[in-house]
Structure formats: C-alpha cells, structure tokens
C-alpha cells in the first residue's frame, strides 16, 4: 500500500492535492482513500491531507502514522511542532519540500535518513492569489515520484477535481502540475510501497492507568488569563504587513480597530506596532489604512531579510 501525506497551510490546496492524487490512483485501478484533516482553524493554519492507495481493498483508516511519501508545500511548517510534518518518517520515507533551501541543507538540518527532495522551482508566489496552485504542483510531483501514475491520468484527475473552476485557472493548474511532474523525472518511482505492521513483531503500546485526580486538577479549565498568547499564531502567516512610519498618519485607531486578532498595539503617541507573534497575515490592516502606509511583503522574503541582519 502507498501512504502519502500532504502538509500545507489552510488555503494552499492540500485537500485538493490529495483529491487529485486520489482520483489519479483510482483511474489507474487502485483502491483509494483520501481525506483532509483540520480543526476549527482558518486560512494559514497548518493542515494536512492524506492518501492511501492499494491494489486490494483498504481497511486501514485515519491519520497515516508511517508515510512512504511526505510532501510539504510550505517549508516554514517544518519548524511548527503542531504541524507534525516529520511524524513517523523513517529511512524508507521520501520527503519532498517546496523550499528555497537545498536538499543537503534540509538533510543536515533535520539530521534525517530519509530521501529528501526539493521542488526545484519553488512556487513562492509573487501574487497572493497564486497560492492555491501549490496543490497542483505538489500533486504533479507526487505522481512522478510514485512512478505508477502516468501524466495522462494525472491531468485527467486534475481536470476532474477542478471542473467547477474557470478554464484559465484550470490551465494554470495543469501547467504547474505538469512542470512539477517533469522536474521530478530523475526521481521517478523512488517511493516504495510500505508494509503493514506485523502482529508477530511489534512494539507494544505503553498503556498507562490514568490516575484519579480531583476536579481542581482534572476539570478542563485554564487557570490564568490570556494563555492563548503562548500560541504563536504568527506562524500561520504567509504574507507580512509592514508599516511605513513615514506615511503613517498616527491616526491611532484604524488599523488596530480593524485587526481581528488585536495584534496591532498603539502607544500613547499614536504609533502602531504590529505584534508579529500573533499577526496571522490576513492583510485587513493593509486594506483599511487610510494613507496606505502598510505594505505587503512575502513572509519568506521578510524572514530572509531578518536572517541577513543577524
């Protein structure tokens, strides 16, 4: 059985990517299971989707713990523990990252025995509206790495899944997927089907007796205000708003009032400051600022610039 996990952010098309790949497998006569996984989060939050494909009916179910192929649409997720990108990877797993960094850098960084590949044409978008195309590229690359899905089936699956979109959008998706498919040609079929866990030789679950604890411990309560501050929702951001203080009119309320996450603080002098730990990059402030003093910068570029300063 093939077990594939796609990691991305809400809005990057990982659910669609899993469906494209699932439909392509299905067209090739495989039994298929594909599913997205997300909570109550919004655009930008880490999400993942998974695909199982086998020649026999599939009884496995739920999250893939030991993937044969992991695809990461956004390399900033690797460092986010909640994203669980590296979960269950072994030396047999192939990891494909959309990244500006080289495979060697990632190998060194992760100290991983896995095969690590990088999508050679990173699709870091100039235009935010292009973000969803990440899904098509990831699906196209996956089809090639698996080696059992010819391009014709992939293209057909992609057109089937996107049928409700405008023709131009579909064509762009097809082009992105095709480019990624072709770029992965040297690695065709490098993903191997994983085996089922053996009942003769397994690591037993380390079950524990859950102890009785009084309600003051065991009730689902949070005993302090503002603990959500510790959740760095700024990690969800793919675009960063940056204030140009030369143009800011110190109106002291427009951007901070509209910010849905209260992530813009204004001091007594009316100077706004963005809390990047919690700004999710919704860009409402950019749209609302009367003197157009807030710019949009791709998060990756912003981080690279910061890195350069160090």
């Amino acid at each position: 059985m093939y077990r594939i996990r796609f990691h991305g952010r809400g809005g990057q098309g990982m659910k669609t990517a899993s469906r494209m790949l699932g439909s392509a497998f299905f067209a090739e006569g495989f039994e298929v299971q594909d599913a997205p996984r997300y909570g109550a989060e919004r655009r930008g939050a880490p999400i993942f989707a998974y695909v199982r494909a086998d020649r026999a009916p599939i009884n496995e179910r739920g999250i893939i713990r030991q993937p044969d192929l992991v695809i990461v649409a956004d390399d900033s997720l690797v460092a986010v523990p909640a994203a669980g990108v590296l979960g269950g990877m072994t030396s047999d797993t192939v990891l494909l990252i959309n990244s500006h960094e080289s495979p060697d850098t990632w190998r060194h960084r992760l100290n991983a025995q896995s095969t690590i590949l990088v999508l050679p044409e990173p699709f870091e978008p100039e235009d935010h509206a292009e973000l969803p195309y990440a899904g098509a590229a990831c699906a196209g690359a996956a089809a090639q790495l698996l080696g059992v899905i010819p391009w014709a089936s992939m293209e057909q699956a992609l057109r089937h899944e996107l049928a409700e979109l405008a023709p131009a959008v579909i064509e762009t998706n097809v082009t992105r997927a095709r480019t990624a498919f072709e770029r992965m040609e040297p690695h065709r079929g490098c993903v191997r089907e994983g085996r089922a866990v053996s009942a003769a030789d397994y690591v037993p679950p380390n079950w524990v007796e859950v102890p009785f604890e009084a309600a003051r411990i065991s009730a689902p309560a949070i005993h302090a205000p503002a603990t959500s501050v510790e959740v760095k929702t700024g990690l969800w951001r793919t675009l960063r708003p940056v204030i140009d203080y030369d143009r800011c009119s110190r109106c002291w309320w427009v951007c901070s009032s509209f910010c849905p996450d209260s992530a813009i603080n204004v001091d007594a002098a009316g100077r706004p400051e963005i809390d990047y730990d919690h700004c999710k990059g919704c860009m409402i402030c950019v749209a609302q600022c009367p003197p157009h003093a807030i710019e949009t910068i791709p998060e990756h570029d912003a981080q690279a610039a910061e890195g350069g300063k160090e």
Partner: peptide, 30 residues
C-alpha cells in the same frame, strides 16, 4: 476494563496542564 491511553499521551496532557497553569490550583494559589 482498560482505557486505551499511553504513557506518552499522559505526558502530553501534563504539558497542556502546565500551559493551563493547573499547578497554581494544586498549590492553592492564583
């Protein structure tokens, strides 16, 4: 009867309880 629950999960739960400052309650503070 057995609840399917592992030692690792309980450890993870303790981390969440630390974030929720449960120990403040346990010590009678807060």
């Amino acid at each position: 009867p057995r609840l399917l629950y592992t030692r690792d999960e309980l450890r993870e739960m303790r981390k969440l309880q630390a974030v929720a400052q449960v120990e403040r309650e346990e010590l009678g503070g807060g």
